[in-house]
Structures are given as structure tokens and as C-alpha cells.
Design a protein around this nucleic acid. Structure first.
Length: 301
RNA sequence: GGGGAGAUACCAAAGUGGCCAACUGGGGCAGACUGUAAAUCUGUUGUCUGAAGACUUCGUAGGUUCGAAUCCUGCUCUCCCCA
């Protein structure tokens, strides 16, 4: 059998963790977590990371391997996963990857273009420009530095503008010239089983999960991380809202309802992203049996 | 039984004679996205339509007016206070 990565994309709360574990046990393989927030060991409750019992059943990679203070990125993830896979395939020709981080998943499956690292000072420079001159300032700068990207980027999205500017200035080459929009060839097969549920059911599960997180101590976890709130890792649903509550800006009740709302929005955004991926075969996450049998037959092909 | 307040689109809620198919928020639906991505940003949401536009809406039945979600009357319902 050719080495195969079984990818299970799915919106937050759909039940990926359980299904991935069941599938991995069946296949006797380990799991690569593709969740950019479960990377951090300090953020277990709010990210619904697999618990110790689940971790003891199947070997998971890329969960809790970073501290919130560590720098990490999509391309590092791509690099690290590709570096790990040969060892995993040596044990078993199948590896399961699941998670909700769309871009990270695409990075592993299709690759990112090679773009040099940027100078943090340059990033700061454009952040300052945005603060002082607003979006108009960024647009003006980008129009001069990278007209090609300017003509097709979403000019209302400051993040995209700042990113392009920092690359262009740091490397001395227009950001758009790095973008090839061609997928990388992988030396393993990839099969994709998307996990979804009826929207109302998904939302119900999200609500229950928020309650569950609170029971498990989300508030305490967030409180313990408040010193790091400025870090990107903490710009995350569940933590942001708790920080607002600690600030006294909103009530605890409001924070809880905002966590629910923002989680639903995130789930929808995930589905939008994967919607355009025609290679995903979708399954109802409540039907684990079908998912397993489909995967097993796909592996035999 | 008496007095008062109110009934607006999926929900909440603004509007109180023409600028209203109706602010805003939620929810829904849809979209963008190449190292901050659980981030960041966008569109749409009465019906028909590609669009222009047409048509039907603001509890309900009438009325006033060139014109009504907005004014008047009856009715129905909801809430509050007094009994």
C-alpha cells in the first residue's frame, strides 16, 4: 500500500477528536493534530485539546508541543510535518491528520510558497503606519511597492496589506512575486474525509462544549494566561472573551455567550474554506461506521 | 371589573405623515484568504429579477389624506398597575 495521509477536516465541535482516535486505533496508526491552538501546552481547556485519556489511547503529534511564548508559523508546521512523516510511514503506511486549521492543513497537503522570514522591526513599522495613517496609508505604500498585489488584494483588509508590505520591504522583492499558486507534489497519497453535521446539531454541540469548558476550568486557565494576552496564541476564541470579562468590559454571562457566538462563526468560516475544496468527501460525523468503512476501502485502492 | 403601555421582517429593536422594503444588533446564508489564520476582511438577508424595475409588507378590519409603519375608529392579543 502506498503511504497515505488520511486527512479529516471538519468544523470546530463536530467531533473530530473522537473519530480520529477511533479511526487511528482501527488502522493502528498515530494522529497528526492540525490545530494551530492545540499546539500550545498552556491552552488545553479552551482549545478542547485531547485529554490525557485520549492521548494515552493513540499517539498524537503536534499537540501541546509549544509554549504560548514560542514563535511558530504555518510554514514551520509544513516543514515539521513533512520531516516527521517518513518516520511515521516507516511504522505504518497510514497516518491520520485531523484538525480545524484550514491554512495549516493546506500547507501540509499542497504546500506554501517559499517566502523568506521578515524583520520584526519592519512588521512593527507597518503596524505603526496603520495606526497613524490608517488603511489609506497602507494602500498607498503597497500601491508603490507591489502594484501587482495591490490590484488583487482585498484593500480593506489591513492584515493582508501589512503582510505584503513587510515581505516586500524585508526582502526587497514584491510579495506577489513569491506567490506561485501551484500545489506542491507530495510523495504520499492524500485522501480527505470531511466531517460535518447538520448545522443546528453542530451549533448545539458547540454550546454544550462551551459549557463543558467552563466546568473544566476555562476561566481559571484564561486567568493564568492573562499576562500573555498580547501574544498571538492568546488571540483566540475563549480566551479573548474571558480577558474582556476580567477587564470588567463585559459580564461573565456576556463573555460566555460571545464565546458561543464566535465559535459558531469560526465553524462557519471553516466550512466556507473547505467548501471550495472539491477533493473532500463529506460525511456526517455521527456516522463513524461509514467514515471508517469509506476510509478503509479508499486505502485499498 | 377599572386604568395604563404595547403589538414592526427569523429574533431583539429603531422609526411616529412623504427622504421606508423600513436604522441597528443578533441569528441565518454566502464569499475572500500563501508565515498573526481560532487571525484579518467582505457581501447578502420581504417576493420576483442578471439588472433596471415591479409587486406585497409594520397585529387585524375599516377610515382620514395627494400620500400612512407613522393620524382616527372598531376588534384581537400581550404586558403592567389597581380591584
Amino acid at each position: 500500500m502506498k503511504n497515505t495521509l488520511v486527512v479529516l477536516p471538519g468544523p470546530t465541535g463536530v467531533g473530530k477528536t473522537d473519530i480520529a482516535i477511533e479511526l487511528a486505533l482501527r488502522l493502528g496508526c498515530s494522529i497528526i493534530s492540525c490545530d494551530s491552538r492545540q499546539f500550545y501546552r498552556e491552552m488545553r481547556i479552551g482549545t478542547a485539546a485531547p485529554d490525557d485519556e485520549q492521548l494515552s489511547r493513540v499517539k498524537h503529534h503536534f499537540t501541546g508541543f509549544l509554549s504560548v511564548t514560542d514563535y511558530y508559523s504555518v510554514s514551520l508546521f509544513e516543514r515539521d510535518v513533512l520531516a516527521l512523516l517518513p518516520a511515521l510511514f516507516a511504522e505504518n503506511p497510514v497516518v491520520v491528520m485531523t484538525g480545524g486549521s484550514m491554512l495549516y492543513m493546506d500547507a501540509v497537503c499542497r504546500g506554501m510558497d517559499d517566502i523568506p522570514d521578515t524583520d520584526p522591526a519592519v512588521r512593527q513599522k507597518y503596524l505603526d503606519m496603520y495606526r497613524t495613517d490608517g488603511i489609506a496609508g497602507l494602500r498607498l505604500a503597497l500601491k508603490m511597492l507591489d502594484p501587482g498585489y495591490y490590484s488583487r488584494v482585498d484593500l480593506r483588509n489591513p492584515r493582508r496589506l501589512m503582510r505584503a508590505l513587510e515581505i516586500t520591504e524585508s526582502t526587497g522583492r514584491p510579495y506577489s512575486t513569491y506567490l506561485t499558486s501551484t500545489a506542491r507534489e507530495r510523495d504520499f497519497r492524500i485522501i480527505r474525509a470531511g466531517l460535518t453535521r447538520e448545522r443546528s446539531e453542530l451549533y448545539r454541540r458547540i454550546e454544550l462544549r462551551v459549557q463543558d469548558m467552563l466546568r473544566k476550568g476555562l476561566e481559571e486557565e484564561a486567568a493564568s494566561l492573562i499576562a500573555y494576552r498580547g501574544l498571538n496564541a492568546l488571540n483566540t476564541v475563549g480566551y479573548r472573551e474571558m480577558f474582556s470579562y476580567f477587564d470588567g468590559a463585559i459580564t461573565r454571562e456576556q463573555a460566555v455567550s460571545l464565546i458561543g457566538r464566535n465559535t459558531r462563526r469560526y465553524a462557519r468560516k471553516q466550512l466556507t474554506w473547505w467548501n471550495r475544496d472539491s477533493e473532500i468527501n463529506w460525511f456526517d460525523a455521527s456516522d463513524t461506521g461509514t467514515i471508517i468503512s469509506w476510509t478503509e476501502s479508499a486505502l485499498k485502492l
